[in-house]
Design a binder for these strands. Structure first.
Length: 123
DNA sequence: TGTATGACCCTGA
DNA sequence: CTCAGGGCCATAC
């Protein structure tokens, strides 16, 4: 899978550091792509799968800046414990729950039932 | 050059 | 269950 050029933030990729960030983003996007339909994973697990252990935050950032054109299954990524990361009641929160249910995932009280969670890691 | 802010996570109280 | 505190780190200002 090859990703389009500039992500939201770094249009100018001159420095090595910036390029490394690009690589991290692509690795994260790749990991998200790997989550099969009807299954759910977490930010932390996605980060680990992308070779960035402990950087759950960047996983969230990666989704935030991901170009729409990638059509990433962002809704299959939730916070630890199956919690939907968006504020309860927010449009995004409802949208994610809607998309998950559309794939047969049970969402209750803002969190996906444990059985629907992929036993993390093994992406 | 610093400080503040997150689609986060974990442990402990 | 909630809260606090520490870790993480790219961006924004």
């Amino acid at each position: 899978m090859v990703f389009p050029r500039a992500a939201a933030a770094g249009s100018r990729s001159r420095e090595a550091g910036v390029n490394s960030e690009r690589a991290a983003l692509e690795a994260l996007w790749q990991a998200v792509c790997a989550i099969p339909r009807g299954r759910v994973s977490t930010y932390g697990a996605v980060a680990r799968a992308a070779g960035l252990p402990g950087r759950a935050r960047q996983a969230g950032y990666a989704l935030k800046v991901a170009p729409r054109s990638l059509n990433l299954p962002w809704h299959r990524v939730v916070a630890a414990g199956g919690r939907i990361a968006f504020a309860a009641g927010s449009a995004a929160h409802r949208e994610q729950a809607r998309r998950l249910r559309a794939e047969g995932v049970t969402v209750r009280g803002g969190r996906v039932v444990h059985s629907a969670m992929t036993e993390l890691d093994e992406l």
